[in-house]
């Protein structure tokens, strides 16, 4: 488990899943770098992490759509000793109907969920290799397992990110690093608050606990809560000629 000689970079730290995760690594005494766009909110979360036991907690600007915001975070992390870990919680999910009405929204969805975080991790990877260890947690979504009429743009971005993570895992393993791909089902966050038809909704704290367990055990891909593995197993195995007529 994490200790004061570890640093966690948390991207998208204003989300409730990221907050729950940050609290847990803070309680273990880690050094946390909370990265996101709402600086007031990040400052509040940094104070909270400090109160909960973080060795240090810092708020830093990160915008998935602005690659210029990446380097200062990496530089800050490089100044820390010990392992550098990174948990990626960034993402955005406009509804499919919003995207249908304004197709140009796709670019932002891809940047937030895939290319932004991937570009960041690409910059971080050499540092993990240099230090001979460190864990990357990439939070994707079960939506990335199969394109569905309800949110296939979001799903495709998450799928791209998942493929990127598997490649990064392949690379970092050689240097002693590790990558955990996390596929949460429905989680009770601001993103899903007003979405209809949610079921088996998990608390962010539960997801954070599952992620930390997976980090400890060096798991490669986890579904959280675990039963989503079986739900998605079924969904992935529906033949395409049937699936294309379904709306789930």
């Amino acid at each position: 488990m994490s200790n004061s000689s570890e640093t966690w970079i948390i991207l998208g730290a204003t989300s409730s899943m990221a907050r729950a995760f940050a609290r847990k690594v803070a309680a273990d005494g880690a050094n946390v770098l909370l990265c996101g766009r709402d600086m007031d909110d990040l400052a509040a979360s940094a104070a909270d992490c400090t109160a909960r036991g973080a060795a240090n907690a810092t708020a830093l600007k990160f915008d998935a759509r602005d690659t210029a915001s990446f380097a200062p975070i990496i530089t800050q992390a490089q100044a820390e000793s010990g392992m550098i870990n990174c948990a990626v919680f960034v993402g955005s999910m406009p509804t499919q109907s919003e995207i249908d009405a304004a197709p140009e929204l796709i670019e932002g969805v891809i940047k937030d969920n895939y290319t932004g975080p991937a570009a960041f991790l690409q910059m971080l990877a050499p540092e993990i290799e240099l230090r001979g260890g460190g864990t990357v947690v990439g939070v994707g979504s079960v939506a990335g397992d199969r394109g569905r009429i309800g949110n296939y743009v979001y799903g495709s971005a998450k799928a791209g990110f998942a493929t990127y993570l598997s490649g990064l895992r392949n690379r970092l393993t050689r240097a002693g690093g590790h990558v955990v791909t996390v596929k949460p089902g429905f989680v009770d966050t601001a993103m899903t608050w007003d979405v209809e038809g949610m079921f088996l909704v998990a608390a962010p704290e539960k997801v954070a606990t599952d992620i930390l367990k997976a980090v400890d055990k060096k798991r490669n891909v986890i579904y959280t809560p675990f039963f989503w593995r079986y739900i998605m197993l079924i969904i992935r195995n529906i033949p395409e000629f049937i699936f294309k007529k379904m709306s789930i």
Partner: peptide, 9 residues
């Protein structure tokens, strides 16, 4: 009901 997660919201 709304359940804001950030003060700005």
């Amino acid at each position: 009901v709304a359940r804001p997660e950030r003060v700005a919201h």
